[in-house]
């Protein structure tokens, strides 16, 4: 009721001009305070809730058949693929200090294994975009992954870097444990000796410098996920 509002304003000695000036002042103050901020602390719970709900939607949207055929007009990027800055120094597996590199695949599996690079290369091979490697689904078959394992953790020797995934994304046809790029062995900048690569996840989910793949009944966060980026990170 504007009559009540008007009465309220008159009682408080606020006329229309005052109301406009104070009103716009308050609105600007709130907007300015909100600028460059992370938003109110109380919203954190709400944002977490939204992230969980979004994850449900994202997993529903997830299709194993998305972009699994080469579209007409697709071309080989070749040397046109932009080279980009990665890091001033990249971790390198030091054989003299740590011995021969191997990849441990364990957790909820019937056949836990430790694979050398040669073992890995003997498994069925595929190429996704320009990455060569073992399809993750083949690896899961090889270690006889338990259906109870709904999540996978990809761990690395790059300090404590790891990221855990939902099993559907890991089992996607185009998720590979890659050891080659552009027909050459993987270079340290791209995660040598082996890294996970999938077009269905954002970059930070694709752990480089793999040492361990663990099948798990629960999710296990991740390096960036634990710092506040969304855990799902799917595209």
């Amino acid at each position: 009721m504007s009559r009540d509002l008007r009465k309220f304003l008159i009682i408080n000695g606020i006329d229309r001009r005052d109301f406009l000036i104070r009103g716009s002042g308050i609105i600007s103050a709130v907007l300015l305070a909100a600028c460059d901020s992370r938003g109110p602390k109380a919203a954190d719970k709400l944002l977490k809730y939204a992230e969980r709900k979004n994850r449900v939607v994202e997993r529903k949207l997830f299709r194993h058949t998305s972009m699994d055929v080469v579209r007409a007009g697709a071309y080989d990027a070749g040397n046109k693929l932009p080279s980009y800055f990665i890091a001033p120094t990249v971790p390198v597996w030091d054989e003299t200090a740590r011995g021969k590199w191997s990849l441990e695949v364990s957790g909820l599996v019937g056949n836990p294994v430790r694979l050398t690079l040669e073992d890995l290369q003997r498994l069925p091979q595929t190429a996704v975009e320009t990455w060569t490697g073992v399809p993750f689904s083949e690896l899961a078959k090889f270690v006889r992954a338990d259906p109870q394992a709904r999540f996978v953790d990809f761990q690395s020797f790059d300090d404590d870097y790891h990221e855990s995934w939902d099993i559907e994304s890991a089992m996607h046809k185009q998720t590979v444990v890659a050891y080659g790029l552009d027909g050459k062995p993987l270079q340290p900048a791209h995660g040598a000796p082996a890294r996970v690569y999938s077009p269905v996840k954002l970059g930070y989910k694709n752990t480089k410098y793999l040492t361990k793949i663990v099948f798990m009944p629960h999710m296990n966060g991740g390096y960036w996920s634990d710092q506040g980026y969304e855990w799902y990170g799917g595209v």
Binding site: C35, S37, R38, G39, L47, A50, E51, K53, E230
Partner: peptide
């Protein structure tokens, strides 16, 4: 410029964006 932005950092802004979109 930071004063035109909201969310504080990339992760925070993404959370706000993907929550507020609904």
């Amino acid at each position: 410029p930071a004063w035109l932005t909201f969310g504080g950092w990339l992760g925070g802004a993404r959370h706000w964006h993907f929550a507020m979109m609904w």
